[in-house]
Structure formats: structure tokens, C-alpha cells
Amino acid sequence: MGFKLLSKLLVYLTASIMAIASPLAFSVDSSGEYPTVSEIPVGEVRLYQIADGVWSHIATQSFDGAVYPSNGLIVRDGDELLLIDTAWGAKNTAALLAEIEKQIGLPVTRAVSTHFHDDRVGGVDVLRAAGVATYASPSTRRLAEVEGNEIPTHSLEGLSSSGDAVRFGPVELFYPGAAHSTDNLIVYVPSASVLYGGCAIYELSRTSAGNVADADLAEWPTSIERIQQHYPEAQFVIPGHGLPGGLDLLKHTTNVVKAHTNRSVVE
């Protein structure tokens, strides 16, 4: 069995187990497998329904001669939608809004960016022009300005110390501490036991640490421990890039980060 097929099978099995364990909360999309990078042309966006009122959005972007996937989250909030992270750029984010209108038909009224990198804030200006209120932590807003990236308009308070959590509509926002970046936030959907790890969490097929220019490698494993301790009931975990899975993604990420750190020390 090929690795790609095995990865998709694991996603399907995880979703099936969740649907059985929580039949009222989960209505997993039966329309197909989780979209992969090879299936999404740059400039297009796919939506994948995880649970009743919960979707991931998947886009792709060219970077350094390669094409990478990027995940975000959409959560229903009454007759409105909360968006977590842009679709990595203005063109993708405009396509995301169009796809949401086509498939869901509810307005996106608020959006949260989970850290300051372009795959999370690139497209904020498109959201703002569409009347979406954009939010991020003060740290993310400051770092985005320093980096020359787009800056969300509103500040999220109460997320300055490791372990801080605040309720934001249908989700809980959690600051686990520094990891992929010093400002990275985690998003949890309690009604569906869905954990969105953003770039602080890796997919299972990833074996290298990737972009760690703004990471705190020493603190990252401790931050992941905080996530595990705060959300032990999480059933569906979405990484910032690639295929979702279960809580095993947290341990896998820790292993990859520690291996990278150990290699760096040896070198």
C-alpha cells in the first residue's frame, strides 16, 4: 500500500471513529477524501466538511520552486461564519470567499490569524475590503508590521502568557507558548472536538522541520505538551499544512522538532 493511500485511509478511519463516538456532533463529509496538494491548482481553494458547521479550507501556493498546501478553518456561528487564517495570499483568499459563498452561503463576518507569517495573514486586506472584521493577538499584529505583512485590524486580548485561553464565538483560542513562531495560536472547536494546530503542528508525513527561522526550538516541545494537557479530548487535529489526523500529530511534531534540534547540535 502506497504512503499517500495509507495517509488518506488514516484520515478516513479517524473521521469514521469520530462519527461513531459522537453521532450528534459529527456529520463528516462523505463526498470524498481530504484534498491534497496535487489536486488543488494554485489560485483555487477546496472546502472539506469535518463536522456539522465545521470545515477546513485548503489552498496551495508556490514557494521556492515548489507547491505547498495550506489549511485553515471555518466555523459556523449562528447565521454567520468565523474564518481562521487566510488562504495564503490575496488571490487565494478572494477564491476562498467565493467558494464559501458557493458552498455554504453564509457571510464571513470575523477572521482570526493564528500567527504573523504570510500563509496566515496574506489576504487580510481582501477580507477587510469584503467587510470582514480581522483579528490577531497584539504580538501577531506587531510582528506582521515588522515583517511588512498585512496586519489584522483588531487585537485579541488575554493571550499574552503561555497557557492563556479565551473564548471567541464558537471557538476557544489558546496560546501554548512559542513553537513554530513566538505568537502562534491554537484554535479548538469544543462542539466538535476539532483542534486546529496551525503551523505549530505537523502532518504525519512530514519528517523535516522546514521553516524554523522564527521558531523557538527549545520551547516548542513544552508548548505541545500544554496543548495535549489542555485538549486531551480532541479527536480531529488539523495541521497548518497537509493531512489531518488525531492527537498523534502532536507527538510526531515533537519528535521531528527534537530530531532537528539534535542534528543542529551535532553539526
Rank of each mutant, 00 (worst) to 15 (best):
S62N: 07
Y48I: 15
V112A: 06
V237S: 01
A66S: 12
G177I: 05
H241S: 03
T114Q: 00
V54F: 03
E225W: 12
A259E: 11
L24D: 14
F26I: 12
L185C: 04
D52R: 10
A21L: 12
S38Q: 09
G245V: 03
P170D: 02
S30E: 12
T253G: 02
S162C: 07
G122F: 01
E44Q: 12
N211I: 06
V42W: 05
L195G: 00
I201F: 07
E39N: 12
I104Q: 00
I58T: 15
G105D: 10
Y135N: 04
D248F: 11
K4N: 14
L204A: 14
V256P: 04
I224Y: 01
G148D: 08
L217I: 13
A215Y: 02
S113C: 05
G122P: 06
V265I: 12
A87K: 00
F3I: 15
L156F: 06
V37G: 15
W55I: 00
A130L: 09
L97E: 02
V124C: 03
L156C: 03
A111F: 07
Y48P: 05
L13N: 08
I40M: 15
F236S: 11
E233Y: 12
H180G: 00
A59G: 15
G245E: 04
G78R: 09
E33A: 09
A19H: 06
T114E: 00
A192T: 11
N149P: 06
E44H: 12
I74V: 08
S16Y: 15
G65P: 05
A19W: 15
E101G: 12
I151R: 06
S161E: 14
A66P: 06
W55R: 03
G177Q: 03
R141L: 10
I58W: 08
A215D: 04
K258L: 12
S27K: 10
P176I: 04
V132G: 02
H230S: 13
I74E: 03
D118C: 06
A111Y: 07
I58A: 06
K251F: 10
S155M: 13
R141T: 06
L249K: 02
D248M: 09
L185Y: 02
G177K: 03
P170A: 10
A129C: 03
G163R: 05
I186Q: 00
E44M: 11
G163P: 03
T14R: 07
T182Q: 13
S7P: 09
S22P: 14
S56D: 09
R263W: 10
V237G: 03
T60H: 12
S7M: 09
T253V: 03
S137H: 08
A87E: 00
T254R: 12
T93E: 00
S223H: 01
E267S: 06
A25C: 14
A200W: 03
S264P: 12
C199T: 03
Q61P: 05
E99D: 09
Y175G: 00
A25Q: 15
E147D: 09
Y68I: 08
G131E: 07
L5G: 08
W220N: 00
H117D: 00
T254C: 07
M1D: 05
A213D: 10
A234L: 04
I40C: 06
P232T: 09
S264F: 09
L185N: 00
F63Y: 06
F174T: 01
I238C: 03
G2A: 08
E39Q: 10
S139G: 11
Y48C: 07
N149I: 07
G122K: 08
K258M: 11
Y34S: 08
E267Y: 10
Y12Q: 09
G169I: 06
A51W: 08
G2F: 15
M1N: 05
K91E: 15
A144N: 05
N184S: 04
G245P: 00
M18Y: 15
E203D: 07
T222F: 14
A111I: 01
S7I: 10
M1G: 06
Y188C: 04
A165P: 09
N262G: 12
T153R: 10
S264H: 13
G148C: 05
H57L: 03
I58C: 05
P190Q: 09
G177P: 00
A144C: 15
I100W: 01
G65A: 09
P35N: 07
V237N: 03
G43A: 06
A19R: 14
